[in-house]
Measured scan of single mutants.
Amino acid sequence: MSIQHFRVALIPFFAAFCLPVFAHPETLVKVKDAEDQLGARVGYIELDLNSGKILESFRPEERFPMMSTFKVLLCGAVLSRVDAGQEQLGRRIHYSQNDLVEYSPVTEKHLTDGMTVRELCSAAITMSDNTAANLLLTTIGGPKELTAFLHNMGDHVTRLDRWEPELNEAIPNDERDTTMPAAMATTLRKLLTGELLTLASRQQLIDWMEADKVAGPLLRSALPAGWFIADKSGAGERGSRGIIAALGPDGKPSRIVVIYTTGSQATMDERNRQIAEIGASLIKHW
Results as ranks from 00 to 15, higher is better:
M1R: 01
Q4G: 08
Q4V: 08
R7K: 10
V8A: 13
L10C: 11
F17K: 07
P25Q: 13
P25K: 10
P25H: 13
P25M: 10
L28C: 07
K30V: 11
V31E: 01
E35S: 05
L38E: 06
L38P: 07
R41F: 08
Y44D: 01
I45Q: 05
D48E: 12
L49I: 14
S51I: 04
K53T: 14
F58D: 02
R59G: 04
R63S: 08
P65H: 04
V72I: 09
L73Q: 05
C75M: 06
A77F: 10
V78P: 00
V78Y: 03
S80C: 09
V82K: 06
D83G: 05
D83M: 03
G90N: 13
K109E: 14
T116I: 06
R118H: 15
R118G: 15
L120A: 06
C121D: 00
A124P: 00
T126A: 10
M127V: 13
D129F: 00
T131R: 02
L136A: 06
L137E: 04
T139M: 10
K144D: 14
E145A: 14
E145K: 13
T147P: 03
A148C: 14
L150V: 13
H151Q: 13
M153Q: 09
V157G: 10
W163L: 13
P165A: 07
P172A: 13
E175L: 14
P181E: 00
M184S: 03
A185N: 00
G194T: 15
T198H: 08
T198R: 09
L199S: 10
A200I: 10
Q204H: 11
L205E: 02
I206T: 14
W208V: 02
A215M: 03
A215K: 05
R220T: 03
R220E: 03
S221E: 10
A222H: 10
P224W: 03
A225H: 14
G226Y: 07
S233Y: 01
A235F: 02
E237L: 13
G239H: 04
G242F: 00
I243A: 04
A245D: 00
L247T: 06
G251D: 11
P253A: 13
P253V: 09
G263S: 07
S264F: 04
E270D: 14
R271I: 10
I275A: 02
I278V: 09
I278W: 02
A280M: 15
A280N: 13
S281M: 11
I283T: 09
